[in-house]
């Protein structure tokens, strides 16, 4: 059964969206990411798993250069999105971040209205020509974030007044409103209860139709549920990367096997 599945997936192999080669990240003298090579496919959910402090979030943040905001952080190596080196001096990180959206661990809506939260990105990127355009973009984003039905009657209520799960879906809607091509999610469900988690996971599965999604998670069950590809990080090394089914059922590396079975972590 499993083997048939794997074979099927191999056939439907997608284009490579992000290609990272020999990535090293240093925080001052600490070598946080050691020579990571990974290829992330388009229209696929890729999960990064691993114990705390293994560098999976750090690596995720190198993909949209959020690490630039940390003075002591230094990135080496080659990361290409659609073949373009994102660390090229000519690349403006602001443009990059419009293309590579991000959802954070803790829901962080702006202390503004729900509408303004979603409209902010399109506004600063000039995606809407007029108010009607903007309304349409906001509605589309909120629908994609699977939260439209809950908030359509109170678009001008503060986004911070929503529940945690709603806030996180609002943040996802905000991230997709700028029409990114890649969506990075840093433990998006760690602050949510199981029901909200289920909603967000369902949403992630839907987002796969349009985006390449990279999700960092502590929960192995979550990785198994939502992802097609899984990367296991340990102590800054990418230990194993492959089909989710294979990682969870038949890992090649003994460290992966230990982590999955709960012996390390």
């Amino acid at each position: 059964m499993k083997d048939i599945n794997l074979a099927e997936r191999a056939v439907t192999m997608n284009d490579i969206k992000i290609a990272a080669k020999g990535v090293q990240v240093y925080y001052a003298d600490t070598h946080a990411i050691k020579d990571v090579n990974v290829e992330i496919e388009d229209k696929t959910v890729t999960a990064f798993i691993g114990p705390s402090g293994c560098g999976k979030s750090t690596f995720l943040r190198t993909l949209n250069r959020m690490n630039d905001t940390i003075d002591i952080c230094r990135v080496e190596g080659d990361i290409r999105i659609d073949g373009e080196d994102i660390y090229d001096p000519k690349v403006d990180p602001v443009q990059l971040r419009a293309k590579v959206g991000m959802v954070f661990q803790k829901p962080n809506p702006f202390p503004k209205s729900i509408y303004d939260n979603v409209a902010y990105g399109p506004k600063i990127h000039g995606l809407a020509r007029n108010k009607a355009d903007l309304d349409e973009i906001v509605e589309k984003a909120l629908r994609r974030g699977a939260i439209w039905d809950e908030v359509k009657d109170r678009l001008h209520a503060p986004g911070t007044g929503l529940s945690g799960g709603q806030q996180q879906r609002l943040c996802i809607a905000r991230a997709v409103a700028t029409e990114p091509e890649v969506l990075l999610m840093d433990e998006p469900c760690s602050a949510l209860d199981p029901i909200a988690t289920a909603q967000v996971e369902e949403l992630i599965d839907e987002l796969r139709q349009s985006y390449s999604v990279v999700i960092v998670t502590h929960s192995m069950q979550q990785a198994a549920r939502v992802s097609q590809k899984t990367a296991f990080f340990h102590l800054g090394n990418l230990v194993e990367f492959g089909e989710t089914d294979k990682i969870f059922t038949n890992p090649e590396d003994p460290r992966t096997e230990s982590y999955i079975s709960g012996r390390i972590g």
Binding site: R97, F104, F110
Partner: peptide, 14 residues
Amino acid sequence: PPSIRDAALGVGAS
């Protein structure tokens, strides 16, 4: 909170 800055940078604000 830095999360507000992250949120703004995350949607591509300068």
